[in-house]
Amino acid sequence: MNILMILTSHDKLGNTGDKTGFWLEEFAAPYYVMKDAGAQVTLASPKGGEPPLDPKSNDEAFQTTATRRFYDDPEAQKDLAHTRKLGAVDFKKYDAVFYPGGHGPLWDLAESRTNRELLAFFDINNRPIGAVCHAPGIFRHVTGRGGKALVHGRKVTGFTNGEEEAVGLSDIVPFLVEDMLIDKGALYSKTDDWAPYTVIDGNLVTGQNPASSERTAGALMAQLTARQAA
């Protein structure tokens, strides 16, 4: 099982002067779900190298078993510090792709032509696509089968308007994930703010928020395992 995990390279939170990037839990928990299942995980980002960490996700209040494991794992830290440049990755050789969230993807991965081509390829070839929290924003400009939006008519979730309002960034982000998915014709659903929630529709596996990262990665791995056994 070869999995490509794609992280953001964007570190500016709009015009606030604050930093953003990827959310640590949303990387660490899926990374270990995949590694513990025996998968080969390749990390990539638009610019390559070490992707920016949202500094808020490093606060003690947001640490979990997975994030603490990461900080005790020199090999994982080395992997993260040397992500491959997305444009140089032969994405066709991977069995699945997974996107951690954080606000960064709303600026770069959502607008990346390379990423749009990758997603269209994975979808038309029915390879699992996982995205958690803000990462479903990557579907913003992706065309799927029949010329419609890739998420049109498909069940998905992602960071809610209420969650964005709670962190005070509704007027800072370039778009609201929930609104965008609905505007694209997705069958968007959600649970209570901050509660774990994962939605599976065919090869699309999406999670609502950081609390959903582990189960979202687990659902993606279940698809791969089932395909291997078939």
Rank of each mutant, 00 (worst) to 15 (best):
E117N: 10
L119R: 06
A120L: 09
D123L: 05
N126K: 13
R127P: 05
P128M: 11
P128L: 11
I129W: 11
G130W: 09
G130V: 07
G130K: 12
A131V: 04
A131Q: 07
V132H: 08
P136G: 09
G137C: 06
G137H: 02
I138S: 06
V142C: 08
V142M: 10
T143W: 07
R145W: 06
G146Q: 13
K148A: 14
L150F: 04
G153N: 03
R154H: 10
K155V: 00
T157E: 09
T157A: 11
T157R: 09
F159I: 11
T160G: 00
T160Q: 02
N161V: 06
E165I: 15
V167K: 08
D171W: 09
I172T: 15
V173K: 04
F175Q: 05
L176F: 04
L176P: 00
V177C: 02
E178V: 01
D179E: 15
D183N: 14
D183I: 02
K184T: 02
L187W: 12
K190G: 07
K190H: 12
T191D: 13
T191A: 15
T191S: 13
D192Y: 09
D192M: 14
D192K: 10
W194L: 08
P196Y: 10
V199R: 10
V199G: 07
V199N: 08
I200R: 11
N203V: 13
G207F: 06
Q208F: 03
A211M: 11
A211T: 10
S213V: 04
S213I: 02
S213G: 00
E214F: 08
T216A: 14
T216C: 14
